[in-house]
Simulated scan of single mutants.
Amino acid sequence: MRICVFLSAADLDERYTRPAREFAELLGKGGHTLVWGGSDVGLMKVVADGVQESGGRLCGVSVEFLSARVRHGADEMVVARDLAERKRLMLEKADAVVVMVGGTGTLDEATEILELKKHGHTDKPVVLLNTAGFYDGLKQQFHRMESEGFLPRPLAELVFFADEPVGALAYLEESQGVR
């Protein structure tokens, strides 16, 4: 399975890097391909290292203004013109999406895939990996949107919230019929 992971390129604390590395190793050992932002820095590097070292494949989609940070040695690397094209290519290349901890760029990517899914433009499974409760506030906001009628579909049809990497991958594999 080709799994798009939206996440931070920042150098982060162990409470975020440890679960990210664990998820990456599960992907690699499962024979999956990581589709990610192509950067070789911060949490993006941690995940790419973990996937590659565990036998998985890497499909990077970078953007021109970040080309100096691109990871060399990926199985596939595409450089998009801008962030909008990057998101589009990442989603096109993936069978499923996982949102890990990140900043405004990650939040933008997460909300775009959920908006596409809400309107029926994709049926790819989406997991929000809520490492160390990072997305508790967002999860609460999504539940409020649902309860107050802002979502035309049940939240459970849009996104699966996982607290641990193993639960995230298990959900994706089950949703895609992978054993």
Rank of each mutant, 00 (worst) to 15 (best):
2 R>I: 08
6 F>D: 04
6 F>N: 05
8 S>T: 10
8 S>R: 09
9 A>I: 00
9 A>W: 01
10 A>N: 14
10 A>P: 03
11 D>G: 05
13 D>A: 13
14 E>P: 15
14 E>S: 14
16 Y>L: 07
16 Y>M: 07
16 Y>F: 13
21 R>D: 06
28 G>M: 09
30 G>R: 15
33 T>I: 07
33 T>R: 14
38 G>H: 01
45 K>C: 01
46 V>T: 11
46 V>S: 02
49 D>S: 12
50 G>H: 06
52 Q>G: 11
55 G>H: 14
56 G>P: 07
56 G>D: 03
57 R>P: 08
59 C>I: 03
64 E>R: 14
64 E>D: 10
64 E>T: 11
69 R>E: 14
69 R>P: 06
70 V>A: 15
70 V>W: 09
73 G>K: 14
75 D>K: 12
79 V>E: 05
80 A>W: 09
80 A>G: 07
81 R>L: 00
86 R>T: 03
88 R>H: 15
90 M>E: 08
90 M>Y: 03
90 M>L: 12
92 E>M: 04
93 K>Y: 02
99 V>K: 12
100 M>Y: 13
100 M>N: 12
101 V>L: 05
103 G>F: 09
104 T>Y: 15
104 T>D: 13
107 L>E: 10
110 A>I: 03
111 T>P: 06
114 L>R: 08
114 L>H: 05
115 E>K: 13
116 L>F: 10
118 K>W: 02
118 K>P: 00
118 K>E: 04
119 H>Q: 10
120 G>E: 01
122 T>L: 02
123 D>V: 08
123 D>W: 00
128 L>W: 12
128 L>Y: 03
129 L>T: 03
129 L>H: 06
129 L>C: 03
130 N>C: 00
130 N>Y: 00
133 G>D: 05
134 F>K: 10
137 G>C: 02
139 K>D: 06
139 K>V: 12
141 Q>K: 12
143 H>A: 08
147 S>K: 15
147 S>N: 12
150 F>E: 00
151 L>Y: 10
151 L>K: 11
152 P>N: 13
154 P>H: 12
155 L>E: 01
158 L>M: 00
159 V>N: 08
161 F>M: 05
161 F>E: 08
164 E>N: 06
164 E>I: 07
165 P>V: 05
165 P>E: 09
168 A>F: 04
168 A>K: 06
170 A>V: 02
171 Y>F: 15
172 L>W: 04
172 L>F: 01
173 E>Y: 02
174 E>R: 15
174 E>F: 01
175 S>N: 11
175 S>H: 12
177 G>T: 06
178 V>P: 07
178 V>A: 06
178 V>D: 07
179 R>S: 04
179 R>P: 07
